[in-house]
């Protein structure tokens, strides 16, 4: 018997049944991707066809083309006498001011509460009571306390996000394996170094998870706070359009929130993957 090159051998096996695992896996992945794309496209087509044909009343569901043309109309003429960009910027400024400050506040509180048992104990009851309360329940209270302007809007968003970042940061700190802390200590690190080089980086994956959840919640609170008062912002467009049954404009508002929510989450995910590269 002569030795054959492996290619030759595989060519010789005539009754090869089925595909190898690698090929199967690739095919499956391709198929899954196609399904993921096909489904939303199908829904969009169905949406457009049913609305265009008048099978669904435009008052309930406007056609996609109608929404798009409404978007360009608003982009051109503005909404309620204010340019669209001003609405968008007002909303984004609110949400990112609140998210930024909220993250810093939540991070600091979370680190302290995670590391120092006594601080955690001191705030335990308060956080356990606040945790299950939907932040929206506080909106009118915040307006009462801080006025109807920017401050109450930003503060309610800030509160909602900070609480989430704080709880996640605290969990991250507490989940830091004891061995890592002890190892650092036996290598001569003091409390501050352990905090900076061990506990904080160990909590980073949780911190980023918290930030992503907080950001998506923040967008929700943003719209709610803008629904309630004011004449500027995407939430205001949604609220105003609803009052006048301008369903196309309503959809423009909803889709813009979706757009900025998705984009900002995507960016945060990119940053997260960069920073906590050792995870997953």
């Amino acid at each position: 018997m002569q030795l054959k090159a492996s290619k030759q051998i595989s060519a010789d096996i005539s009754e090869f049944k089925g595909r190898d695992l690698r090929t199967q896996e690739l095919r499956e992945r391709g198929l899954l991707f196609c399904v993921g794309i096909a489904m939303p496209v199908l829904i969009l087509i169905l949406w457009e066809v049913t609305t265009r044909q008048g099978w669904i009343d435009e008052l309930f569901l406007p056609s996609i083309s109608g929404i798009v043309s409404q978007f360009f109309a608003i982009a051109k003429k503005g909404y309620a006498g204010t340019p669209l960009i001003a609405h968008v910027l007002a909303s984004l400024r609110r949400v990112f001011t609140a998210f930024g400050i909220g993250t810093v506040v939540g991070l600091l509180l979370g680190l302290l509460m995670g590391y120092y048992k006594y601080i955690r104990a001191a705030f335990y009851v308060a956080t356990e009571i606040l945790r299950p309360i939907p932040p929206l329940a506080f909106i009118t209270l915040f307006i009462l306390w801080f006025g109807i302007g920017e401050v109450s809007k930003v503060l309610i968003i800030l509160y909602a996000g900070a609480l989430i970042v704080m709880l996640n940061t605290m969990e991250g700190v507490r989940a830091c394996p004891k061995e890592k802390i002890l190892a650092a200590r036996t290598l001569g690190a003091n409390d501050l170094s352990i905090f900076a080089f061990v506990i904080f980086p160990a909590a980073l994956p949780n911190i980023f998870t918290g930030m992503r959840v907080a950001l998506s919640v923040d967008f929700g609170i943003l719209v709610a706070s803008e629904l309630l008062a004011g004449d500027l912002g995407i939430g205001y467009i949604i609220q105003d359009a609803s009052t006048f049954f301008n369903v196309e404009a309503l959809f423009v508002g909803i889709l813009m929130i979706a757009f900025f929510g998705v984009v900002s989450d995507f960016l945060l995910r990119l940053i997260s993957a960069r920073v906590v590269h050792w995870q997953g």
Partner: peptide, 12 residues
């Protein structure tokens, strides 16, 4: 010095 069973390296 201490060497632990595992889990003590700094992943970052």
């Amino acid at each position: 010095g201490v060497v632990f069973q595992g889990n003590a390296l700094f992943d970052w």
